[in-house]
Each structure stands twice: as structure tokens, then as C-alpha cells.
């Protein structure tokens, strides 16, 4: 796991494709806020109607996520965090980057279990995702845990983007790095807000309809 190339690959995958995926995920979720149930279902259909969707998922999400996550845990393990003695803004972000990385790792596994895994085992279909999210978002504890997970993920991405720009030699001088701090932290706030707005949109009873409708179907079949 040592070495220049494996570390560079970790850095690259964090932005392309994982960062790009996070943004696309944010946009499709935001459809729930903007267009309600119809809008969200439209976004889900659009994503699943992409050609070679299995390979897109495998190469742009699953494999990069696996590599970035496992290698990232190793990086987090290696750091001797020292914010106590060096409480500089950059050093604090260094530590938060590692903490949010680990939180995001756990959150993504949990979130995938709730959604994608349930589809794999055939418990729900893509059309039931809105109802699934509706149930999760209406549980206050789960809602808070999701907020923590989502905020961690967006911070990890936005701050990781800042570090990516340094590590690839794009922002070199202190001024460039300062400007990119403002842009990346702005991105963090914006993405967090959009994600949370989408999460609150899922709480609307509109999304419940599918769930109750499904239950109604079961009821009529049973009776």
C-alpha cells in the first residue's frame, strides 16, 4: 500500500469519479426537493436508464469506493494527530479530514445497505427508494445520523478537493491555496445545504403514498 503511485491514485479517485458521483447524487436527490416524488423518481429512472449501467456503477462507484475507502483508512491510521500542540486552521482540517473520512466510510456502508443492497436482494425496487428514504428520514435518530454522515461526506470531499489541488501542484503559492480554501469551503456549505434540503423533502407524506399504496396492495391480496 506504500508508494507514490498508490497514494496518487487514492487522491485522483477521490475527485474523479467519487467526487463527481457525490455531486451527481446530490443533484438527483435534490430533485426530491425541487420536483417532489415525481421529480425524484424521474432522476432515479434517468440514472438507471443509462447504457451499461452495471459497468458504470462498477468502475465509477464500487471499485473506486473500495480502493479509496480502504486506502483512506490506512492513511488515517498512520497520522499522529497533533491539534493539541498545533491548533492551526490547516492542521485542524487535516485531522477533521481523517475523522470525516472514517465517518463517511461507515456511513456509506450503512447507506448502501439501506438502499442499494435492499435492491440487490430483491426486497425493494428502484421505485420504492423514495418510500425507503421517507421511512428513514422520519425517524429522528436516523435523520440526525444521516445529517452527520452527509455533512462528513461533503466536508471530506470539499476539503479533499482542496488537498487534491495542492497534491497535484495546481495551487502552489499561499495565495492560491487561500483562495481555493474559500471556494472549497463554500462548496462544502452549499453541498451540505442541498443534501439536507433533499433529506427534509423525503419527510413529506407525498413519499409515504408509495409505501402505503404497496401495503394496500398487500392488504387487498391478503383479503
Amino acid at each position: 500500500m506504500k508508494g507514490y503511485y498508490s497514494r496518487k491514485l487514492h487522491s485522483l479517485l477521490g475527485v474523479i469519479p467519487l467526487g463527481a458521483f457525490l455531486i451527481s447524487h446530490m443533484i438527483s436527490n435534490f430533485k426530491a426537493f425541487e420536483g417532489g416524488k415525481k421529480g425524484f423518481e424521474g432522476a432515479v429512472h434517468f440514472l438507471n436508464s443509462m447504457p451499461l449501467v452495471f459497468f458504470l456503477e462498477l468502475f465509477l462507484i464500487w471499485l473506486p469506493l473500495f480502493y479509496h475507502g480502504i486506502y483512506g483508512l490506512y492513511i488515517a491510521y498512520q497520522a499522529k494527530n497533533n491539534v493539541g500542540n498545533y491548533s492551526y486552521e490547516r492542521n485542524i482540517r487535516f485531522t477533521i479530514q481523517r475523522v470525516t473520512g472514517v465517518i463517511t466510510f461507515v456511513f456509506v456502508i450503512w447507506h448502501m445497505y439501506d438502499t442499494r443492497f435492499q435492491i440487490i436482494i430483491g426486497k425493494i425496487t428502484h421505485d420504492d427508494l423514495g418510500a425507503t428514504m421517507h421511512n428513514i428520514m422520519n425517524n429522528p435518530v436516523l435523520f440526525i445520523l444521516y445529517v452527520i454522515g452527509v455533512v462528513s461526506a461533503t466536508f471530506h470531499f470539499a476539503n479533499g478537493l482542496w488537498a487534491f489541488l495542492v497534491s497535484w501542484g495546481i495551487t502552489v503559492g499561499p495565495r492560491a491555496q487561500k483562495v481555493s480554501t474559500y471556494i472549497c469551503m463554500g462548496l462544502f456549505v452549499l453541498m451540505s445545504v442541498l443534501f439536507i434540503l433533499a433529506m427534509t423533502a423525503f419527510r413529506s407524506s407525498e413519499f409515504q403514498a408509495a409505501a402505503t399504496a404497496a401495503i394496500d396492495v398487500v392488504k387487498t391480496v391478503l383479503s
Binding site: K2, G3, Y4, R7, K8, I75, A79, N82, Y86, Y88, R90, N91, F94, W162, A163, V166, S167
Partner: peptide, 16 residues
């Protein structure tokens, strides 16, 4: 030399 194991990739940008 900086691109060998333990080279420049070890920087985590804490900027301490």
C-alpha cells in the same frame, strides 16, 4: 527520488 516510497506523497497538507 521524491517519487520513491516514503517520498513526497507522504505529505498530508497539515502545513504545521
Amino acid at each position: 527520488a521524491l517519487m520513491q516510497d516514503g517520498g513526497i506523497e507522504g505529505c498530508g497538507n497539515s502545513q504545521n
